[in-house]
Simulated assay, not measured.
Amino acid sequence: MPPRRSYDQYCSAARALDLVGDRWTLLIVRELLAGPRRYTDLHADLPGVSTDVLASRLKDMERDGLTTRRRLPPPGAAYVYEVTPRGRGLLPVLQALGTWGESELGERRPTDAVRAHWFALPLLRGLEGEGLVEVGLEEGEFHLRVGAEEGPVYGDGPAPGEADARLDLDTVTCAAISRGELTLTDAVRTGRVTVTGDGTLAKALREV
């Protein structure tokens, strides 16, 4: 592979951008925080990226130790990409970027793609403790692993097992939380988020 481009600056921020500053790289990490993904799944959930660019970014990220690729055993026999512990360390970076970009989100444009699990990061910011949370939106269901120290942080579909809490809300409310206009706590308190379940997280949210 050709050598990685560098800013050639003796600065940790510049060194970090050498690895993750290319277009699409951080969004690939966002997708892989949901767990191992096949190339076709990544391409489907990154609308706008070309196949050539996605393949190139994945090769760069594997070389730089952010992702790995492994072959699934039969009958799957497909390759999947997954984030490494070093790549997973970018979760706080994505959280900070999401917070910083709240004011830029605005109303959804007609050309904006959306996937239900893209709301996982802003919802995670409003949850404390540990546990499995299932979320229901009009666009679909996804689940969050609050306080997870390793493994997937969130994923598509219902929770894989008994959830500690389930949140049901509409996309308007979720977008307001994503824009920083509404906290999850206030959304629960005002009835815009329905909380069900008997786990510690569910009880804590209902008691706010």
Rank of each mutant, 00 (worst) to 15 (best):
L132Q: 03
A176M: 01
F142H: 06
V53D: 05
S56G: 13
V20Y: 07
E162F: 06
L42G: 02
L58A: 08
T67F: 01
V53M: 12
W118R: 11
E82T: 10
V133L: 07
L66D: 02
D164P: 05
R109N: 07
L32H: 04
R206E: 01
K59W: 10
G131H: 05
G157P: 08
S50P: 11
R57Q: 14
A176W: 00
L144K: 03
Y79R: 10
G65N: 07
S50Y: 07
F142D: 05
L90G: 00
L137R: 09
T51F: 02
A159M: 06
A14G: 11
Y79A: 11
P73Y: 04
G157R: 10
P152H: 08
K59P: 01
L46T: 00
L201R: 01
A120E: 13
P3I: 00
E104N: 08
P36C: 08
L94R: 03
D156Q: 13
R108C: 03
T25I: 12
A165F: 05
R4S: 15
A55M: 10
L182K: 04
R192K: 15
T171R: 10
G106T: 04
L137C: 06
G65R: 09
Y7W: 11
D186M: 04
R125L: 15
L105T: 06
R4I: 14
E107D: 14
V114Y: 06
S178V: 00
Y39V: 02
G65L: 09
L94G: 04
G65W: 08
G98N: 11
F142R: 03
A113D: 13
R70M: 10
R125C: 10
P74R: 09
T171M: 01
V208M: 01
D156A: 14
L90R: 00
I177R: 01
R179K: 12
G129C: 03
A163H: 04
V83D: 00
D41F: 06
W118D: 14
E134G: 13
E62K: 09
P92C: 12
E149P: 06
P122E: 02
L32P: 04
V80N: 07
W24K: 09
D186Q: 11
V146F: 07
G126E: 04
G126N: 01
Y7F: 14
Y7E: 11
E162Q: 14
A202Q: 00
A148F: 10
E82V: 05
R115S: 15
E162R: 13
V20E: 09
V146Y: 03
R109A: 15
V20M: 13
A148M: 10
C174Y: 00
A78D: 06
V133D: 05
A13E: 11
L33M: 12
G126M: 08
A176D: 11
T84C: 08
P92D: 12
P73I: 06
G129D: 01
S178M: 05
E207S: 13
T51V: 12
W100H: 03
T68H: 12
G161Q: 03
H117A: 13
G48H: 09
C11W: 14
R69C: 03
A163M: 04
L94E: 01
L26S: 02
D164S: 06
T190D: 13
V53G: 02
E104D: 14
D52A: 15
L201E: 01
T84S: 06
L127F: 08
L46G: 04
E181H: 09
S103R: 15
G65F: 07
C11N: 15
D60T: 04
R179S: 01
P85D: 10
D164N: 09
A116E: 15
H43C: 10
L91Q: 08
G129Q: 05
A78L: 04
V83L: 08
